[in-house]
Design a protein around this nucleic acid. Structure first.
Lengths: 150, 150
DNA sequence: TTATTTTTGTTGCAAATGCAACAAATTTAA
DNA sequence: TTAAATTTGTTGCATTTGCAACAAAAATAA
């Protein structure tokens, strides 16, 4: 069996590492760029949905978002229809950094897909999306405290 | 542009999260399983090569390996031909946990590729390997302190 | 040879990470 | 309607993480 998952791990760690270094310039510390992009693209999203998009622990998200709020990148608003939920919005400062994060991500995407035909890019995306859907089921299962059998 | 990199990030974080939870049972804390597998498969490897396989910071590797040595999973040996290098070997305890880590990884691989034909698995592997090779160049470049232009 | 550069490895901060264990609001079941 | 379960969010603690700044050995250049 080819080690597909190892390739994915290597790619993800390498890219995350690059992004973290490049976003220091905007006073974004480790991992924070992930939240900012998604909040800009989904204003009003709640934490629980966000963490599900990113696949990160609930407590990690809480603290990352606290810090982002303190540093003025995002703000939390109470949902008038649901006292439990807190809706997340980018601030002006958040909107300002968004294009930089986005273009860095686009550039990394181009680097990653160097030498790929349009067809290959399409195929890669579809296969990865299927893998992600397969994997996220188990992630939710295990995160809830269930045990996998293997 | 389809967000291939986001899919990869989601998959990697989800799988890593699952593995970390499942390996607590063997007293392996966050990320340590990555090192153990590779040392078992490449006994005598030095830290620098290892960290390049995993794509992690040098200091992170140092400390993860220190802890793995303290906890008896691996040992460091001085290279007689090169005083600078320290060769890494699994201990008996390390060899003991290896099959469990391996079978967990295999299982996750099966889950990830559910619904894939053999051809699709092969294609996915090849595409991912190409992406990894593209990305690791930039990783090394940026890690060395160089600046990308985009 | 000697000097310079690269490779390999370690520490000192300062920060993120995540499992537990909790709380409160909401939804579902009885 | 009330009770039980789920959803959403927060903290306490112990740990990993990684940029700097360093050191020593080795490889390369002069």
């Amino acid at each position: 069996m080819k080690e597909i998952l190892r390739e994915i791990g290597m790619i993800a760690r390498a890219l995350d590492s690059i992004s973290n270094i490049e976003f220091k310039e905007f006073d974004l510390t480790k991992g924070q760029y992930l939240y900012v992009v998604r909040i800009c693209e989904n204003p009003g999203i709640i934490q629980e949905q966000l963490l599900d998009m990113i696949k990160v622990d609930r407590s990690t998200a809480t603290r990352a978002l606290q810090k982002l709020e303190t540093n003025g990148f995002i703000e939390k608003q109470n949902d008038p229809d649901n006292k439990k939920n807190k809706r997340l919005f980018p601030t002006e400062k958040g909107e300002m950094v968004y294009p930089f994060i986005k273009s860095e991500n686009v550039y990394s995407g181009q680097v990653a897909l160097q030498g790929f035909s349009e067809d290959e890019k399409e195929i890669a995306f579809n296969l990865l999306q299927r893998i992600r859907k397969n994997v996220e089921k188990d992630w939710e299962f295990v995160k809830k405290g269930n045990k996998r059998n293997y």
